[in-house]
Amino acid sequence: MKQDRQQLNRQLAQMLKGGVIMDVTTPEQARIAEEAGACAVMALERIPADIRAAGGVSRMSDPKMIRGIQEAVTIPVMAKCRIGHFVEAQILEAIEIDYIDESEVLSPADDVYHIDKRQFKVPFVCGARDLGEALRRINEGATMIRTKGEPGTGDVVQAVRHMRKMQSEIRRVQSMSEDELYEAAKQLQVPYDLVLEVHRNGKLPVVNFAAGGVATPADAALMMQLGAEGVFVGSGIFKSGNPKKRAAAIVQAVTNYRDAKLIAQLSEDLGEAMVGINPQEIKLIMEERGK
């Protein structure tokens, strides 16, 4: 039965592939996102850029606010809980969220343990910077992975680094002989069976999205060409000059990620992109949370 649930949750992620998941803070924004073609929305009180600006401890959103967004749209609704905060996850399960993001964007509640996600019926997506982190989260029961990137910066450089690292490690595992996999499992600090699965299939056992700093149609297409199966866009849309147009352009760019001519057209007259922060200006490094 539990096995069945894990499988169904992995399969929901398969249905999201080739799509864009957008951060929204109000029912109105959720409707704009759905109308623009988002395949799911992430309901949260403050987008990552504002969490950065506000500082302090950042927690799960008010369930009432999340329910308002669930009522506003027909596409799947996701919400974030703090790393290790299994009671926040229980609450999100109780309000029948479609996917929980155990997220480094919020302040971690546990500096050692992640949530034992296999105890839940509701699916989880988790951030990862490399193959080891991704497989550790999958072992704990995550049924979808995304790059961590550096959220709320409008700077895609970390997402690119994480996606490249994951892909190159996958290729390395794929090219090993089977007797070398035991040592690889040891180095990656993950179970042998998961390494064997990566070796055989040349991909993660679950769907892998890009997240963190995606702000333009070109950023989204870049992540797709680097091997992402879909894209999360957080602050990039509703921190920009024309959210409606930018959202729709990013959706089209993800579908047609190899069509440079079309992406050129999509990039015209989008208004101002979010301002963004460079890595050296960042005070709070979220990607370091939860390894």
Binding site: L16, G37, A38, C39, I75, V251
Partner: peptide, 15 residues
């Protein structure tokens, strides 16, 4: 295929 029908509807029209 399966996926999100609202997304596909939007893209069917845009394309």
């Amino acid at each position: 295929p399966g996926g999100e029908s609202t997304t596909m509807m939007r893209l069917l029209k845009d394309e």
